[in-house]
Amino acid sequence: MKAKKQNLIFTIIFSVLSLLYVVPLVIVLINSLKKKAFVSRYPFALPNSRSFAGISNYRGGIEKTEFFRAMGGSLIITVLSVMLIILCTSMCAWYIIRVRNKLTKLMYFLFVFSMVVPFQMVMFTLSKTADFLHLNNPVGISLVYLGFGAGLAVFMFSGFLKSIPLEIEEAAAIDGCGPVRTFFVVVVPILKPTLISVTILQTMWIWNDYLLPYLVLDRKRYSTIPIAVQYLRGGYGAVDMGAMMAVLVLSIVPILVFYFFCQKYIVKGVLAGAVKG
């Protein structure tokens, strides 16, 4: 009886906390409908007949940041990079685990080592290298992401592959499957849970990444959502907070939709990544 009462109190407290947790997003949404002068001066006021701006912030924000170009950029870069990462690193991890020699051991060590290195360490030299090799476009940058993101992905794949018995693969080989077919027909289906986890983790990272694309991309031609948002800060002078609010709303909505549909996988991915990381 006492525990039941306690639980009710906890439910009430946590309902209030959850509401407070969502409030910042609601405030951004409300402010996206107000004229810019009213956004920073009265952020907590509801729009009224004087401050209501309709969709003009959205129109202005989309125009100023070329938002849909940025969204397309984010989409293409994320999809390309994640596909490249899961394909190449899963193959690489399988090779490393099944062919044990000095080269693969050294590579494994280097991959694990690369997870420790913060981006600022390679920031300058990486952007120069990418420039030199003309990797300043969405296809090129996915190669850079493959290189910089390989560490975690290889580590997670090989951790899982170590626990798979050899017999299944050997049976396939005896049946006349070459390594490529064995990998895609036998190994990939077993790898599925890890494939999903790696996909989720890399998607969350690349979609939200600001600095790498900012430094590597040719910004006259390509953009991403974080770059578009930060672009509104501009040089000097006041930021157009009305347009900013609209762009923030537009950036958050796709994430919430993604979260709504993939919540189960996202939580699993987070757990898998945390245990390994």
Partner: peptide, 29 residues
């Protein structure tokens, strides 16, 4: 099978290795 797989180095290992050199190892060193 290991021996057989070894010959497939260019397919399995090389793409990641090249990207790793460009995206990490060379910039780091």
């Amino acid at each position: 099978m290991t021996k057989n797989l070894k010959k497939y180095f260019p397919i399995f290992l090389l793409p990641t290795l090249v990207a790793f050199f460009i995206g990490f190892l060379v910039p780091f060193v």
